[in-house]
Amino acid sequence: MPFANFKVPERALSTGQKEDLVHKTTALFVEMFGENVRPYTMVLIEEVADGGYGRADVVFRIPEG
């Protein structure tokens, strides 16, 4: 079963954008592995709380405004 796991900042994507991400990711897997994987493709979008992630010792936060 193809599986994609996206971690994004909380409230960074609208419902429509999440749906688009699911559709485009599924299409990518189908393109790579064939139509038979479509019913088994799993796309998980996890929202990470603001300040709950970082890189190179820098904690990321969504700017106000």
Rank of each mutant, 00 (worst) to 15 (best):
R38Q: 10
Y40D: 09
G51V: 06
D50I: 11
P39E: 07
F29E: 01
T41C: 12
D50K: 00
A27W: 11
N36W: 05
Y40C: 15
N36P: 08
V43P: 09
L28F: 13
F29C: 03
A49V: 12
M32W: 11
A49M: 14
K24M: 12
V22D: 00
L28G: 07
L44S: 11
T41V: 15
V37L: 01
H23N: 15
Y40T: 12
G51Y: 04
I45M: 04
G51M: 01
D50E: 04
H23G: 08
E31K: 09
F29D: 02
A27P: 06
T26W: 09
R38Y: 04
V22L: 08
H23S: 08
F29W: 11
P39N: 09
F29R: 05
V43E: 03
E35G: 03
V43D: 01
E35P: 10
G51W: 13
M32P: 04
E46K: 12
V48S: 04
V37R: 00
T25R: 03
T25A: 04
G51P: 05
V22S: 01
A27I: 04
G34Q: 02
T26D: 04
E47M: 02
V37W: 03
D50W: 10
T41H: 01
A27Y: 04
E46N: 15
M32L: 14
N36T: 15
F29K: 02
E46S: 13
M42K: 13
E47F: 02
V48R: 01
V48G: 07
A49G: 10
H23P: 07
N36E: 15
G34F: 03
E31S: 10
I45S: 00
